[in-house]
Design a binder for these strands. Structure first.
Lengths: 192, 192
DNA sequence: TGCTTTTCTTAACCCAGGTTAAGTACGTAC
DNA sequence: GTACGTACTTAACCTGGGTTAAGAAAAGCA
């Protein structure tokens, strides 16, 4: 149940057995069926979750269209930073793209953890830092790569996404419509 | 010299006089003339800096074209997170758009600070968290706003950018060419 | 002051992605 | 097995940003 979490945590900071156990007592397991929501826009994000199994995404809704922000797999932490940190309503939807098992931590418990064991501030810092790196890479790619280049990078750098995520979701992640992704795929197939 | 820094730090965490003084001893003032570089792509980012006066940007270079990632003004901290944290060479250029005064902190000094005064882990965490929020907002906007919408939001939300940054840099920040920004501005002027 | 450089705009043409609409393939529930 | 929904593709037409080239306006600077 907690093997994956342990491996993941230990990469961030060394923990004694007691500290890990304490951390685990703050977590609540939760199952999500495919298409079920972890968070909806308009709600305040009061919890973060470790993905023990399955796959989730977050997306934005604008004029009735979904825009995929990111895909998450086993070992990732999810939550809307903006909302979680500021207490403002989220503008993101998190839902499961496959049946999923989560380990959920409440905002208040995390704040208490920071207060009681300041060592875990490092956990929070490193987590945030990793999100920064990912988010900046994504921004850069949206800024100066063409959709075709983004598609090729995705194939190369995140094969798991290509294997487990439907193409129309990938199109949305790339910032284009499914029809355009089909066009790009055709173009690439012909020019090989 | 350190007034702005003090105000800025105190918003993150309460400090004793001694702690603040200690923090300040880790900082080195540095002046940058307009167009001078704080960091170039290919270098490892071994320092972060507080902007005491002036304005900087970071940009990416692709096929000879500059793509503005972000603009920074007084009170902001700058540095390439990706490079600073991983020790990998940066792919960003930081340069001054106006003459600037910085307060520079070395990577090793920051790490020592974390070790000696764990309380400052919070400083690092909150800083990273704020960067996450900014970066995710930018990603979202690039993903689902049109260039025209991004331009209108910029006028509304960051008037300082409009006042102090040349339009061709703003175009690059919006993900379009200067000619297209001119077109958008004309369109908006006519349709009012 | 006059000269150069930078900044900004305009216009004509091109093209990748959006839109609309239709069709195919596959899975699954009944 | 059939019917339905989901996923994916194709094609015709449209549109907004890119490209190229030129010129106007403002800012530096000698």
């Amino acid at each position: 149940m907690f093997d994956r979490l342990k491996t993941s945590l230990e990469r961030l900071l060394p923990l004694t057995r007691e500290e890990f156990v304490y951390f685990v007592t703050l977590l609540t397991p939760r199952k999500l069926a495919k298409h079920e929501y972890f968070l909806r826009a308009g709600e305040v994000c009061t919890q973060i979750a470790f993905i023990n199994q399955g796959c989730l995404r977050y997306y934005y809704l604008k004029d009735g269209d979904e825009f995929n922000g990111q895909f998450f797999f086993e070992g990732a932490w999810i939550g809307d930073y903006q909302s979680f940190l500021t207490g403002q309503p989220s503008i993101q939807y998190f839902d499961a793209l496959e049946d999923a098992e989560l380990l959920v931590m409440q905002h208040t418990d995390l704040q208490n953890l920071y207060a009681e064991l300041p060592k875990f501030e490092r956990f929070g810092r490193v987590l945030a830092e990793n999100v920064v790196i990912g988010s900046q890479r994504r921004t850069a790619s949206l800024l100066f790569d063409t959709p075709e280049e983004r598609y090729l990078k995705l194939i190369k750098e995140r094969p798991k996404v290509m294997e487990r995520i439907p193409l129309h979701h990938i199109a949305s992640y790339l910032g284009i419509k499914p029809e355009s992704l089909s066009r790009i795929r055709k173009r690439l197939a012909e020019n090989r």
